[in-house]
Design a protein around this nucleic acid. Structure first.
Lengths: 220, 220
DNA sequence: TCACACTCCTTAACGGTGTTAAATCCTTAA
DNA sequence: TTAAGGATTTAACACCGTTAAGGAGTGTGA
């Protein structure tokens, strides 16, 4: 029975959770598969290639197939849910954010992007701002989870002992910042607030946006 | 003449720009210093320790000493300028964002944080939201520059050849997203817009925030 | 049935990495 | 002059990604 690409990826993903991205060596992975390290070079051109495929595999396995918005759904809540899903997807595996940020997104995601843009344009965005909004939100989420998992790797519970009298504001606000879910939601909502305001400003009074027929083309 | 810590760090920073973070090995750095690799272990406990110190060294050298806001300056423009400075600082060196995100911030930054919070609280933020705002903005900037430098490492000018007919919106919006400065500013302003709105909502009508005397204590 | 071809994997090796242990210079202080 | 200790060297260990060459195993066409 030959070694299947998918078997390699599934094993790599499990191993990732065990040993982390830095511990994920080809030799270690090969041992896990009952095989010698160079065997992996028949299935992947090199380690980077394997990690690229691992990224999309993890994405698929987590079901990050951002569904097109249900008709009539508000764009902001739909976008917010997409970002929450993105965060959950990266949190699903150890070093998930590092993995996702360190490798190229699959070129096959263009149809998906086009669909998202179409929905936002229908909601009143210009095409430029729709693209900017998705990119910028994505960067926020990646930056957020990166730090979130960074803290998890080195359990940095230390460093919280300081003189409350010298730093009263940090003392007062500190606990609030430790609630990662609330913190994530705070930044997400602030950014969406800003986008809502802008869409209302340029999309509201401007009939060019309201009269346009839906541009959400059916893309594969 | 013994090897000085600062000499090591300065050389490491120069070497970083030459070979990138992945190419920055202890042996390579030692050769640059005219020394054997294990000599570095007298000055730093290990490579991670060296990188941690390199991070703060780069920060200091770039002059990221975010000045306290000049009296009367609007908090949002001051915060925006701080984030632009942060971005510039990371862009100043190759893999600067990876370096900054991969290592712990120095514990000596508490006084600075306390000052920032004090200014924001004076501007109408609650202590919790002030801390949330700074953290969340920082994550955005790091996520942004990380991707920005990622593109620079692998010069990914390729991948922009697609069928304009299948993806009309991407085609229309694509060029706008390539202007990194404008893109950065877009996300930054959207987030600040959201914060402005929230501060106005909770800080405006609520006298508890307006009547409070300035809490910007003088911290070292 | 033989021989070729192709898939998949192994063995061996190269040059590189971070890190440790031990020995050794070199400077300073007594 | 000797002792102490700061600063560095040499040697080595256990890894790493990657390449080259070759060998099993299977299928196919002559």
């Amino acid at each position: 029975m030959a070694l299947e690409r998918e078997t390699v990826l599934r094993t790599a993903l499990r191993l990732l959770d065990e040993v982390g991205l830095d511990g994920l060596s080809l030799r270690r992975l090969a041992k896990e598969l009952g095989v010698q390290a160079p065997a992996l070079y028949w299935h992947f051109t090199n380690k980077q290639d394997l990690l690229d495929h691992l990224t999309v595999f993890a994405r698929e396995e987590a079901g990050i197939t951002v569904e097109p918005p249900s008709a009539g759904a508000p764009w902001d809540e739909w976008l917010a849910e997409g970002m929450r899903t993105l965060r959950r997807g990266m949190l699903a595996h150890r070093d998930g954010a590092r993995l996702a940020s360190g490798n190229r997104p699959p070129p096959g995601s263009w149809p998906h992007i086009e669909r998202v843009l179409g929905f936002l344009v229908d909601a009143g965005f210009t095409a430029e701002d729709a693209l900017r909004a998705t990119i910028v939100l994505g960067h926020y989420v990646v930056g957020f989870v990166l730090d979130e998992q960074h803290d998890q790797e080195r359990q940095d519970d230390a460093g919280l002992d300081f003189d409350p009298q010298r730093f009263p504001l940090i003392t007062a606000a500190g606990p609030a910042a430790l609630d990662r879910d609330a913190l994530f939601e705070y930044g997400l909502q602030r950014m969406l607030d800003g986008m809502r305001a802008q869409v209302a400003a340029v999309g509201g009074p401007d009939p060019a946006h309201e009269d346009r027929p839906p541009t959400t083309a059916r893309q594969d």
